[in-house]
C-alpha cells in the first residue's frame, strides 16, 4: 500500500501510456478487422483526394514534369477561360431547374397518390412510378437523345403532327435551344425516387393530425398547404440538397447527349474538367476545376447541415 502510493507520483506518466498501449493490444483484433477497409481507402480514396488538392496548384501535362504555379490555374480559370465562366452559368441553369422541378412535380404526384382512398390503388401507382427508374440511366439518356433527334426524333414528329413544322429543329444541335433541351429532359420530371421519398413523408403524418384538420374544415388544397408541406419539410430539404448536388455533378447526361456542344452551348464544369484532362492531358488545370467543384459542393453541404440543425431544434 505504502509502496504503491510512494511509487505513484514517479510513475504518473507511464501508467497512462501503458494503458493506452495495453488497450491497443487488447483491441488488436478490432484493428485487424478494419485494416483491409483502410488499406483500400488509403489507396483509392485518400491518396487521390490528397493529390487532387495538391495537383490543382501545379502545371501538370502528362509526360512533362509537374511545375508548381501556385494559384495560376485558378487565376486562369476565372480571368481568361471564357468557356469555364460560361460553364458556370450553364450549370447554374441546369441545377436550378433540376432543383425546382424536383421540389414541385414529384410532390404533386405524391399528393395525388396519397389522396387516393383505396390502398391497393396507392400501391399500384407507387409501383408504376418505380418502373421507369429501373431502366438504366444510360438507356433513358440515349432515348431522350433520340427524342430530340433532328431528323427522326419523336419531338419533331409530334410538332409536325400538330402543325408546328416551323418549330422543328435539331434540338441538341442548335446552340440556342441545346441547353434548354438538355435541362428539360425527363419530362414530366416526376422521377420515381423523389415521389417515393415524398410519399414516405406523407404516410408518416399521423391520422390524428389529418382527422383533426378535417374536423377544423381544413381539407383539400388547404390541408396540403397548411399541414402536409410543413410536416414533410424534412423530405423537401433532403430532395433540395440531393438535387443541387445531383445537378452540379450530373454532367454524365451532358457527356452522353452533347459533350458540352454545340460549341460551348451546354458546357458545364464537369465536362470541361473531362475535356481538359482526357482530351488535352492538362491534368493540373483539370485538378483545379475539380478542387473548385469540391469547394462549392462542400460549401453547400456545410450550409445545409447548419440549416438542418437549426431548424430541427425549433
Amino acid at each position: 500500500m505504502t509502496t504503491a502510493s510512494a511509487e505513484a507520483p514517479v510513475a504518473a506518466r507511464t501508467p497512462k501510456t501503458e494503458t493506452l498501449f495495453t488497450r491497443i493490444m487488447r483491441y488488436k483484433h478490432a484493428y485487424a478487422m478494419i485494416a483491409t477497409s483502410f488499406i483500400l481507402l488509403a489507396i483509392f480514396n485518400y491518396y487521390p483526394a490528397f493529390m487532387g488538392l495538391v495537383r490543382a496548384f501545379y502545371n501538370y501535362d502528362i509526360g512533362l514534369e509537374p511545375e508548381f504555379i501556385g494559384l495560376g490555374n485558378f487565376i486562369k480559370l476565372f480571368t481568361t477561360d471564357q468557356t469555364f465562366i460560361k460553364s458556370l452559368g450553364n450549370v447554374a441553369i441546369f441545377t436550378l431547374w433540376r432543383t425546382i422541378s424536383a421540389m414541385i412535380f414529384p410532390f404533386l404526384a405524391a399528393e395525388l397518390i396519397f389522396g387516393l382512398t383505396n390502398p391497393k390503388h396507392k400501391f399500384g401507382y407507387r409501383l408504376a412510378m418505380i418502373v421507369p427508374i429501373v431502366v438504366p440511366g444510360m438507356v433513358s439518356i440515349l432515348l431522350w437523345q433520340f427524342i430530340y433527334d433532328g431528323v427522326n426524333g419523336l419531338l419533331n414528329a409530334l410538332l409536325k403532327a400538330v402543325g408546328l413544322v416551323d418549330w422543328q429543329r435539331a434540338w441538341l444541335g442548335d446552340p440556342s435551344v441545346a441547353l434548354g433541351a438538355v435541362t428539360l429532359m425527363g419530362f414530366p420530371w416526376v422521377g420515381g425516387t423523389n415521389v417515393l421519398i415524398y410519399l414516405a413523408g406523407l404516410q408518416g403524418i399521423t391520422n390524428e393530425i389529418i382527422d383533426s384538420a378535417k374536423i377544423d374544415g381544413c381539407t383539400g388544397f388547404r390541408r396540403v398547404w397548411y399541414i402536409d408541406i410543413p410536416l414533410i419539410r424534412g423530405q423537401f430539404k433532403l430532395i433540395f440538397v440531393l438535387s443541387i448536388l445531383g445537378g452540379l455533378q450530373g454532367w454524365g447526361t451532358i457527356f452522353v447527349m452533347t459533350k458540352g456542344g454545340p460549341g460551348t452551348a451546354t458546357m458545364v464544369p464537369g465536362m470541361w474538367l473531362y475535356n481538359n484532362a482526357f482530351q488535352w492531358n492538362k491534368m493540373g488545370y483539370a485538378s483545379a476545376i475539380g478542387l473548385f467543384m469540391f469547394l462549392v459542393i462542400m460549401a453547400i453541404t456545410v450550409i445545409n447541415m447548419k440549416f438542418i440543425k437549426s431548424s430541427d431544434t425549433n
Binding site: 481507402l41 478542387l291 467543384m293 469540391f294
Partner: peptide
Amino acid sequence: LILALLMIPGELTLVPSFLL
C-alpha cells in the same frame, strides 16, 4: 475519417485516380 469521404465528390478525385 471515413465519414469525411462522403463529402468528397468524384470530380476532385477523378484526375488523380486516373493517374493512379
